[in-house]
């Protein structure tokens, strides 16, 4: 029983990432009808926003400290981050420590900008082209984006720690009546899950309870009619693209402490996220979220030792296997709507 709960918890953080990326993909697909293969790259850019902010905050200048000597007996040179000069040492340390959560504020405008530029600059011209062309051009864009990141940040993963307040682990078992140390779960993963749940809730609330969201939903259902009513639906869809990019970017920002980002992390997640979208049903937002969590949890169950002993290698293929079965038995996915991508 405790092992089962542990696996569900383990599945939640990966599932959160899948759900967030799949949510963005579905938003873009549902509004603009574009299959965006560059969405993984947006996730990666978000992660590198966190890395960049961390680098900016730790930007230092050299100060010669006359009172201390290094091993050669010369005055010691100290690297002092500029943040110390601005806020004092204690405050500066706290700011650097909290660089990943603060990167959220930094990433939102960056990602919205990237998304809007991408849509206006490139994807706009591909609405009338076949889906294959959209896949190909965004695939090319993904290659370009990841190579640009590789040029500036190198090919190695860049570890960026979570705030020290969240570095430990949390004894979840003790809380719900198991023996101590049976279910241990890192704090940051809990934070990630809570954050993902918050973002997902916010996106749904935005679509459900605001006028803007209502217009967008109407546009998703029948774009032409909304246009005929005198509403500039293109502009709103562009904003939705920016929003989807921001969702992917935030997923990336918060994922940094779990897995040090490298330039191909986007591609790694992209393939799985597409599988998630297809399992959830193209164009269905709840489906994408549900499938993301389901597949994340399934994956962690499949990597339990007991399961691997029975079916070796199942942890590697479970997601694809489930996707194939779902696509063949329920062609529209778990919650797919009729008439989406059925040609």
């Amino acid at each position: 029983m405790d092992a089962l709960i542990l696996q569900i918890l383990n599945g939640l953080d990966k599932g959160s990432a899948y759900a967030l990326i799949a949510l963005g993909l579905t938003l873009i697909f549902g509004t603009l009808g574009v299959v965006n293969f560059a969405h993984g790259a947006l996730f990666m850019i978000g992660a590198f926003c966190a890395v960049t902010l961390n680098k900016i905050l730790t930007l230092s200048h050299t100060v010669v400290d006359e009172t201390r000597k290094n091993f050669l007996g010369q005055p010691m040179e100290l690297q002092v981050p500029y943040v110390y000069d601005l806020f004092g040492e204690d405050m500066g340390n706290t700011i650097i420590d909290w660089s990943v959560p603060m990167a959220i504020l930094f990433a939102i405008p960056v990602m919205v900008l990237v998304g809007v530029v991408m849509e206006r600059g490139l994807i706009k011209y591909f609405y009338k082209r076949p889906h294959a062309d959209q896949i190909l051009v965004t695939f090319g864009l993904a290659i370009v984006l990841q190579e640009v990141i590789k040029y500036f940040y190198g090919a190695n993963p860049i570890p960026t720690p979570a705030p020290s307040a969240f570095t430990g682990s949390f004894d979840f078992g003790a809380l719900i009546g198991f023996d101590a140390n049976t279910i241990i779960y890192p704090y940051w993963r809990l934070v990630y899950f809570a954050f993902a749940a918050m973002i997902i809730g916010a996106v749904f609330a935005f679509l459900q309870f605001t006028t803007f969201g209502m217009v967008v939903r109407a546009g998703m259902a029948d774009r032409e009619t909304v246009g005929l009513l005198g509403i500039n639906i293109d502009k709103r869809f562009t904003i939705m693209f920016g929003l989807a990019a921001a969702v992917a970017g935030l997923a990336g920002v918060m994922y940094v402490p779990i897995n040090p980002p490298n330039y191909h992390m986007g591609m790694d997640f992209l393939v799985l996220s597409f599988v998630v979208v297809v399992v959830g049903g193209m164009g269905s937002l709840p489906g994408a979220v549900l499938a993301g969590f389901l597949l994340g949890i399934l994956e962690s169950f499949a990597s339990m030792k007991e399961v691997i002993d029975i079916i070796p290698g199942i942890n590697q293929i479970i997601i694809y296997l489930v996707a194939i079965i779902i696509l063949l038995t329920r062609p529209r996915g778990l919650m797919g709507r009729k008439g989406v991508m059925e040609s």
Binding site: I135, Y320, L327, M341
Partner: peptide, 19 residues
């Protein structure tokens, strides 16, 4: 057909790679 076909072939290939 369409993108579903692309994803299915991708899934099969990734499965074979992983195995």
């Amino acid at each position: 057909s369409g993108i579903y076909f692309s994803i299915l072939t991708l899934a099969f290939a990734q499965m074979m790679f992983a195995l």
